[in-house]
Design a protein around this nucleic acid. Structure first.
Lengths: 366, 366
DNA sequence: CACATCACTTGGATCGATCAAATAGGTGCA
DNA sequence: TGCACCTATTTGATCGATCCAAGTGATGTG
């Protein structure tokens, strides 16, 4: 294996000076076409690639973007994070950047990591996930003029920075409207306790859709911590009500899984599953496996937007706005349940009442 | 905000030379205790941290470890990868390293990324996941003497490199033995088609446990691609057999989910769930949510081992072995199902027999 | 013909750390 | 006294890129 090629070795090979080779890469318009061609073939021949360390030292830019991994189980679930990281890696890669991970057990610990990174000048920018009320990280970063973008709105605080987020309310609104169009009137929402920005947002979409159709929501809202067990309990209570729900929108796939389970408990026949349509959130493999409808976050697109906004900060062009930008993406409703049309109508199929294990063979009509 | 502290500025502050400050960090034993203390307080006062770029340029080490993100849905699932990345970030962080992501759509694309990284000298080492038969990546890296560790055995090829893996066979063996001890005799295994190293490994543990107890396995093995639907179909066929299974061990939680669903279809009452104990693999949130037993991979420990082996390669000590090291970790059996003892005995609860009109596909037995 | 202009190319200094070798000061031993 | 030796610290060179200012011809212009 030959020695690593350097700027000098390439220059010698092409019979030009160091700087000319450098220009061939960074400012090709300065070179005479013939020279450029000669240098490029020399670069090719020696398989030259500029040393990241040297370039970084001189330019004080590392071409690295940091992402704090949220503590497991906190906020974003593994599947969502995984896909987001994928998108981020791809998008930043094609812009010449790489993604660096650092662990972030909590705000303070994460800030400590920022401090270290700032001092060692090892990162150009940050992407924050799992924004929440009273997030101290954004203020810390803003104070020091470090470029960053958050995936998630700055709940509570005013937005002094750029962010990208998925419009949860629009998603649940669409899902609910869809169910209403299919004839449902008693559509329940199972979500999280008030106070979590994301949860409140998702709930509000359901509320607005119900309000827009003049449908009452009394007895249709259940709020509990995330998890299948919560969904199970919630669904059980919704079914025993005097005027039970005929469809359910959930703030997460975990809750949806619980709901699915509760419905199976009432009636195990496969066809009746669709009788009470369920809509989850995040479109995880679980939803796909069980045939539950779900709202898919456009994670790759979100990641691309994050990178785009970061690049605006890192390499501002002439037409780059000075104001921080905000991007809100709509989730996509993935309709599954019984492979039929948008949502099953309750007029076609009787609503499930508890106590009587309805054996409904109806099957996949329509 | 003050200027970034450099080696020189700290030296001036402590009234010593550059090199002395450098030694205070890298070779403290060379300094006089008094000098050391003086320098350290100067470092403290100026919040000095060595520039990564400069250090990297001089030492030609980046303190970065690369991890190729496997294409989504391929091999490792998001949850497992997430936890592994967490562990890796933590473990390498405490060793002074950071984790860099790069996308890897396939072997070739990944190798291209290696080439780039090699040329720019931007990474010190690699961690590979999702090793498979005929993996070209390891050979490529080994040829060029690049330090790397795989999380996953080198299936098929001989092991010329260090690796860490989870002993799937030991896990399924333990689970099966446990079920046998609880009185089960007809224990099925639902896995993947022959040829995938991981799948074959997990199957073999069940086989050896059955053999050790002199139990026949005829009609108890079903192999199909991963996914809940496969599990559902497999379980349906197992139940309709003349001598049906009373317990099931699965190669994945996805399959286990399908099995769970198929059992609910037969009998929806909650207590009967435990009648046919299910054991999944990976201990994902789905298993936890549904109360399915599962084999948890010690991902944090695996990540720590990966880092330890990498450090042996990167910073060999006097007592470091020259031979590549292999670490095999045992998964942990997480028993859930009905909160009772290890596994439910079939004598306590009647096994589920079918007889109902279930239309079965007669599927891939063998 | 001198001089400014333009297109292209070059050499020197620099980023901030580490490596290698040299220096200053003390101690031991002949 | 003289020389070797050890400790503690300093000086100069270097890693490989980019920035900056200066240098070379060729051409156009008054």
């Amino acid at each position: 294996m030959a020695e690593r090629a350097t700027l000098d070795s390439v220059a010698a090979h092409a019979r030009v000076s160091r700087q000319t080779v450098s220009n061939a890469l960074n400012a090709p318009h300065l070179l005479h076409p013939d020279t450029l061609a000669r240098v490029q073939s020399a670069i090719e021949a020696t398989n030259y690639r500029p040393s990241r360390a040297a370039r970084s030292l001189r330019t004080s830019r590392s071409q690295l973007i940091g992402v704090g991994l949220p503590a497991a189980g906190d906020g974003v679930n593994g599947y969502v994070l995984d896909r987001f990281l994928h998108g981020l890696t791809e998008a930043s890669g094609s812009a010449g950047y790489h993604v660096l991970l650092f662990s972030a057990g909590g705000d303070e610990q994460e800030i400590e990591a920022y401090d270290d990174i700032l001092a060692t000048q090892s990162l150009d920018a940050f992407v924050l996930t799992s924004t929440h009320h009273g997030d101290r990280r954004t203020a810390w970063l803003a104070e020091r003029d470090l470029p960053f973008v958050t995936f998630g709105r700055p709940w509570g605080t005013s937005a002094g920075h750029s962010w990208v987020d998925v419009d949860g309310a629009a998603g649940t609104h669409e899902a609910t409207t869809n169910l209403i169009a299919a004839g449902h009137r008693r559509i329940a929402f199972i979500g999280w306790p008030d106070g979590s920005g994301v949860g409140d947002d998702r709930r509000s979409g359901w509320q607005s859709a119900m309000a827009a159709a003049d449908l009452p929501t009394d007895g249709l809202l259940v709020q509990d911590q995330d998890g299948a067990e919560s969904g199970r309990v919630a669904m059980a209570s919704l079914l025993t009500a005097s005027d039970p729900a005929t469809a359910v929108v959930c703030a997460s796939d975990s809750l949806a899984l619980g709901v699915y389970d509760a419905l199976r408990q009432v009636d195990g026949s496969p066809s009746s599953r669709a009788a009470v349509p369920i809509v989850g959130f995040d479109d995880t493999p679980v939803a796909a496996a069980l045939g539950i409808s779900s709202l898919a976050q456009p994670l790759v697109a979100a990641a691309q937007e994050c990178v785009r906004l970061l690049l605006d900060l890192l390499e501002p062009g002439p037409d780059t706005a000075d104001q921080p930008a905000h991007v809100l993406l709509a989730p996509r409703l993935v309709v599954r349940a019984s492979g039929a049309g948008p949502m099953t109508s309750p007029t076609d199929r009787p609503a499930v009442h508890v106590g009587q294990p309805i054996t409904n063979e109806e099957g996949e009509t329509q």
